[in-house]
C-alpha cells in the first residue's frame, strides 16, 4: 500500500537493488580481472613500451629503431615469412581435414562414426612433446615408416624430419580435435529438413555443401581457423623438435634469441611482432563471436 502510494520511493528501492546486483557482479569478476591486469596486461604494456626505448648515449629515446633492425635483418624476416606461410598452410590443411571429418560425423551414425569421433579427439589428450617424439620415431630416419616401406621393397625414403614438412605434420595432427568439435557443433545446428529441402529441389551434394552447409557454418569455420592459427603461430615444442635448424618458427627463434644469444631486447621485439599478428586473428575471432551474440539477441 505504502509503495503504491509512493512511486518515487519504489523506483528508489529498485535502483538500490540494481546497484547491489551490479556490485555483486563486479565482486565476482574482480579477482580474475585483477589477475589479468597485474599478471598479463601490465607486463605486456611494459614490454611493448620497452621495445620502443632505444638506447643512446646518456640514456634512451623513444623510437622504432629496434623494429627497423628486425626488418633489416634478412634472417629475422625469413623466419617471420616461414612462420606465416607454414602457419597458414597448416591452418588450411587442418581445417579441411576437420571439415571432412565433421561432415562425415554429421551424416553418419553407428559404431564406426563413434569410433572416428573418438579417434579425431584423441590428439587433444596427447601432449605436443609426446606427439613430436612419436613422429620422430615414426617418420624419422630409420623410423617405423621407412622400415615398413623397405619391407615392401620401396627404398629411397626421404624423411620429412627436420624439414618444414615435419612440423607441418605435427601441427595438423595436433590441430584436428578442437576444430572438429567446433565445426560438428555448427553443423548440428543445420536441420536435416534444411538439407533435405535442398535435395528435394534438385541440388546435388556439392551444391548442398557450398550453398547450404558452409554458409550456415561459416562462423564455426572462422572460429576454428582462429583457434588453429593462434595455436600454431606461437608453437614451440613441435617446430623445435621436428623442424629444420633454419629458417625457424618464431617461437623457436624467440627462445634461442633469449636463451642462447642472451638478447632479451631483440626477443621482445620478436614477441611484439608475433603478438600483433595474433591480435589481428584474435580480434577477428572476437568480432565473429560478438556478431554471433548480437545475431542471437
Amino acid at each position: 500500500m505504502t509503495s503504491d502510494a509512493n512511486p518515487a520511493g519504489r523506483s528508489g528501492a529498485v535502483r538500490t537493488m540494481h546497484l547491489k546486483e551490479n556490485l555483486a557482479g563486479l565482486a565476482l569478476v574482480a579477482a580474475p580481472l585483477g589477475l589479468l591486469l597485474v599478471l598479463i596486461l601490465l607486463p605486456t604494456v611494459s614490454m611493448v613500451w620497452n621495445t620502443f626505448q632505444v638506447p643512446v648515449e646518456g640514456g634512451t629515446v623513444t623510437g622504432i629503431a629496434r623494429y627497423q633492425a628486425f626488418f633489416a635483418d634478412s634472417y629475422s624476416v625469413a623466419n617471420l615469412r616461414y612462420t606465416l606461410i607454414w602457419t597458414l598452410i597448416s591452418c588450411v590443411t587442418a581445417l579441411a581435414i576437420s571439415l571432412g571429418i565433421s561432415l562425415y560425423l554429421r551424416f553418419s551414425e553407428g559404431r564406426i562414426a563413434t569410433m572416428i569421433h573418438a579417434l579425431s579427439l584423441f590428439p587433444l589428450f596427447v601432449p605436443a612433446i609426446i606427439i613430436s617424439y612419436a613422429l620422430v620415431r615414426f617418420l624419422g630416419p630409420n623410423g617405423l615408416l621407412q622400415l615398413l616401406l623397405e619391407q615392401v621393397g620401396i627404398t629411397g625414403y626421404r624423411t620429412p624430419y627436420l624439414t618444414p614438412i615435419g612440423p607441418f605434420i605435427g601441427f595438423v595432427w595436433e590441430n584436428i580435435p578442437l576444430p572438429v568439435l567446433v565445426i560438428t557443433a555448427g553443423l548440428s545446428q543445420v536441420s536435416d529438413h534444411a538439407i533435405e529441402a535442398a535435395r528435394d529441389l534438385g541440388a546435388g551434394a556439392w551444391r548442398i555443401l557450398f550453398e547450404i552447409l558452409l554458409p550456415q557454418v561459416h562462423r564455426s569455420l572462422l572460429i576454428a581457423f582462429a583457434l588453429i592459427f593462434l595455436g600454431v603461430i606461437g608453437a614451440y615444442t613441435v617446430p623445435y623438435l621436428l623442424g629444420p635448424p633454419a629458417p625457424e618458427m618464431m617461437g623457436v627463434f624467440m627462445q634461442r634469441t633469449l636463451g642462447n644469444l642472451q638478447r632479451p631486447d631483440e626477443a621482445q621485439v620478436q614477441a611484439v611482432i608475433l603478438m600483433v599478428l595474433s591480435s589481428i586473428v584474435g580480434g577477428f575471432y572476437i568480432a565473429t563471436m560478438l556478431r554471433g551474440e548480437v545475431g542471437r539477441k
Binding site: H193, E196, A197, R199, D200, L201, A203, G204, I212, P215
Partner: peptide, 19 residues
C-alpha cells in the same frame, strides 16, 4: 534420388535457409 524426381516438399518446420 530426391533431386531427380518431379516432386517438391513442404516440411513441417518450413526448413527455410536462414542465410
Amino acid at each position: 534420388q530426391a533431386n531427380r524426381r518431379p516432386t517438391a516438399m513442404v516440411f513441417q518446420s518450413h526448413a527455410l535457409w536462414n542465410h
